[in-house]
Amino acid sequence: MAKKDVTKPMSLDPRGGRPREKCVTGIEGIDRILNGGIPVGNIVLLAGTVGSGKTTLAMEFLINGAKNGETCCYISVTEPSSKMLSNLQTYGFFDDSLVKEGKLNIFDLTVINDRLGVERLDGTYTAKDMEALLGAFEDIVDELGVTRLVVDSITAVCYQLPDKGSIRNFIFRLSQFLSTFGCTTMLISETVVDSNVQTYSIFGVEEAVADGVFLMGNIVRQGDLLRSIQVIKMRGAKHSRARHLIELTPVGLAVIPLLKWGQDGGHAFT
């Protein structure tokens, strides 16, 4: 009888199977939470309240990719790209040359809209506008060979879509082609807290279509605000579901598990 091989420990991952190729975010702690990174081609909803660090996290995700030689793209919906570039200078981990070399590309959605001629006075996209916009996103990703994309924010785009069905359709179509291109994407979702409950999105549709959801918020501890992050779901990856503290340090964001007793019973989001 053949001897049992005892040199290889049995995998403790209850899912078994082979892990998917990961997009390493390079953010200390996030990759650990995600067991190596975001599965390549996934669309992640980065949901959070104001001041919770969504844009900073998304930017570091792009900058780390650009430093790694990838082509990364940020689509700004809520503020001019020039303002975003000025803000970037304040990050110790930012490097000007990434923009100059075309590794980090920043686009204004308003400029894209102007070029497509889809800006409407009533602020609502028609079905034709939506097709044009999806086509523009696809062109950017395809022509530049983008492997990491951030849309800041998807909430602002959703406000211009006529109904929930259109929102679902838009994000679904977006995720389909991004996945085909192997482009890992973060869609920023602005959320609010109502009666101590934080939602994942304003419209309640985005989280169902996205492959992953990061929930970011502020926890009140004796009057002080602490930034928190929790991975709610991530298709194709085993991940932690614990709430973590997130902090901006001179070398970038750092993530560490939150003390359990220091969370005010979990009813202190703002």
Binding site: R221, L245, E247, T249, A254, L258, L259, G262
Partner: peptide, 8 residues
């Protein structure tokens, strides 16, 4: 009160 920051 930011105890986790000590570890970071």
């Amino acid at each position: 009160t930011m105890l986790e920051s000590i570890l970071l």
